[in-house]
Write a protein that binds this DNA or RNA. Structure first.
Lengths: 108, 108
DNA sequence: TTGATATACCTAGAAATTCTATGTATACTA
DNA sequence: TAGTATACATAGAATTTCTAGGTATATCAA
């Protein structure tokens, strides 16, 4: 089975949380929406990464009751998380730029 | 240890070979040069992927003596390889576009 | 001439990332 | 009341890339 090419999971999650606090399931939906269905992150991918971000103090969790009555676990970006996002964004741009440079260079 | 973020190895190698035939070691140097040292592919990454491309008939190998007297193993892109490159390029653009869309969407 | 470095190929096993599959439980709706 | 969507979670498999090691030749400086 082929890997479905979502490798910058951490960057994507941090980026989502930079616009507003979200709960896990919501992030999957938002990611799909914002990417026009290119990303369909699986829960098996999301939750371990999210817990890792929490352990590294890049995000903080808190519980909040939804209008439906269910309790959801929201995540909030910390200052450290915001710094990490800035770095990862730069790293992504570096990486994407390099790939594009290789793709464009048809001749030496 | 952290993965060094070269995940589109196959795409990069096919792209290199679309400009001219190359031998393995040369690809590492070219990739580094064209990406301005962003990519420093390891031989442990290159050779298995290259052999995989050969098994899938995306590239063909032939030996050729270098001016130094050493025999090098050159790789040539096949028609199937060229088609694969086209697909992978499109896939990369889709992926990069989606990441950028998520990164740009600071608000809903 | 000898030791270091660059060239040139290769593989085994470890590490990291993401997926599949599964489990639990609640809310909504047909 | 049965199915689907919501919402959380983990174990184990699959995939990709890395680290580390091996072999061998060519070049260049000490």
């Amino acid at each position: 089975m082929k890997k479905q090419s979502i490798e910058h999971t951490q960057l994507l999650l941090l980026s989502l949380l930079s616009s507003r606090d979200m709960y896990g399931y919501e992030m999957i939906l938002e990611l799909s929406r914002r990417s026009q269905n290119v990303f369909e992150m699986k829960e098996g991918t999301l939750y371990p990464v999210l817990h890792g971000l929490e352990k590294q103090r890049y995000v903080e969790a808190y519980e909040q009751e939804a209008p439906t009555g269910r309790v959801r676990k929201y995540y909030r970006l910390t200052r450290a998380g915001r710094n990490c996002l800035t770095e990862e964004k730069a790293s992504w741009e570096r990486y994407a730029g390099a790939v594009n440079a290789v793709l464009r260079a048809e001749a030496t």
